[in-house]
Design a protein around this nucleic acid. Structure first.
Lengths: 241, 241
DNA sequence: TCTACACACTTGTCTAGTTGTATAGGAATT
DNA sequence: AATTCCTATACAACTAGACAAGTGTGTAGA
């Protein structure tokens, strides 16, 4: 318990300091759930709102994040790292000592829409595979991605993706031994609620979106990709060759 | 005070909007079965009840109907989907610094800070020129930039910049006939009030920031540049040489 | 071949718990 | 008098888990 010095510090600040301390000391480890607001309020002998004030401070400082209905969690802070123009997600992360993984959110085949048709040079309504998921570094979500593949040319791709989860490997099994990036477009966006939930960032926080097209060795488009990166967790590095 | 993002949308509304959009675009056609509630919950990262709330909305609007034990089916046909071919401001990264017009905000010489010293390979406190301004296209501010130049190697640069406003020309007059971009780092940020004012965007709106280093032909750094692009007004295109 | 049954899976419903937000007001400080 | 800090209450939004009800499929048995 902290001592109250005469020039009284605000209650919520003491509580925030205490909790922040306990997180720093490893009392609550990364990804762990804190006690509920009600429990904390009872522990510190204050109103729930006062606890909320302290928790808001922790969240603002990036120490925690909350999920309505679920609880308050200790944020796993991924170290900043760079992705080169040679775009191979896993290799880059491995180089910086982090373990990369993917979480599949969606894997299905459906007719394409006009935009996808144009990007992949397909006729309207041709079938495409949709591969959507999260890219994680040491368990913390870094980016959400969606890749669109022409299904006619790569009939078995979906099965391969569900096994390996690696795009490069899955494409290789379908006979696309290598592919190169034709273009990357970048824009800054505000996160919508769903995206914010997945990336565990506040609603409306800035997000870096990339839209890319990859070609096979014959110059035909094989992937139309979107990715949304948590703005404050990532720095993309573009290096000439 | 934290930034107030646009009116918060409930999670289930975002999900309903997303699904309704995908039906409209023909991703799920008439008679098709949607993924199960559990799958959708996993895809959107929410509880099944939240998905059900969204599905109830779709059913109320007549887009879908469900059969207990069987699944949820699409009743609506895809509406015509028109791609509005928007005019976009494409800015090539390699050719940055060639916008239509500039407005100078600051032009001064001062000792460098540690970060600048490192970027430009200078000794601590060495003098640098600071060139700060706005890039305009058709009168609308596209980006704010700040360029740092080593003052010792380019003593007359400031005078040249105040005359031409063109970085390339000013450098040429100082004997740097050409320069190449060594690296560009990109990240998404929220606009602070000053930046928002300059770019004429709402406070906290997403902004695309680039940090770059340019080298002369001998490989020595001659410019350390920052730029902040209004996220919704620009798309940066990165094309391999 | 047909039937009956088991079983996995899906939607429907219920209860309980947790965070988010709004409103109102008392007490201490400035 | 105004502001800040904290309490108090109520409700909305979402999660969590459990179970009931209905569907689709495979299988064993007659």
């Amino acid at each position: 318990m902290t001592v109250m010095p005469p020039p009284r510090r605000a209650l919520w600040k003491s509580i925030a300091a205490t909790l922040s301390d306990e997180i720093a000391q490893g009392h609550y480890t990364q990804g762990a759930r804190l006690p509920t607001e009600a429990e904390l309020a009872s522990r510190f002998g204050v109103n729930r709102h006062t606890v909320r004030h302290a928790l808001t401070d922790l969240a603002d400082r990036g120490l925690t994040h909350s999920r309505r209905g679920a609880g308050v969690y200790v944020t796993a802070r991924p170290t900043e790292y760079a992705i080169g123009r040679r775009v191979r997600f896993h290799q880059n992360l491995a180089a910086s000592g982090q373990t990369a993984s993917r979480q599949v959110l969606r894997l299905e085949t459906r007719p394409c829409d006009p935009r996808e048709a144009e990007a992949l040079a397909l006729s309207a309504g041709a079938p495409v595979h949709v591969y959507e998921g999260l890219s994680l570094a040491d368990g913390a979500p870094l980016a959400m991605f969606r890749s669109i593949f022409p299904a006619d040319r790569l009939p078995g791709l979906r099965a391969h993706l569900s096994e390996t989860q690696s795009i490069t490997q899955a494409l290789a099994r379908e006979g696309v031994s290598d592919y190169t990036r034709a273009s990357t477009r970048l824009t800054a966006k505000a996160a919508n609620p769903i995206l914010a939930l997945h990336l565990r960032i506040p609603d409306g926080a800035p997000v870096l979106r990339t839209v890319s097209i990859n070609l096979d060795l014959q110059g035909r488009p094989v992937e139309y990709g979107h990715a949304w990166f948590a703005g404050d967790r990532i720095t993309l590095t573009v290096t000439p060759e």
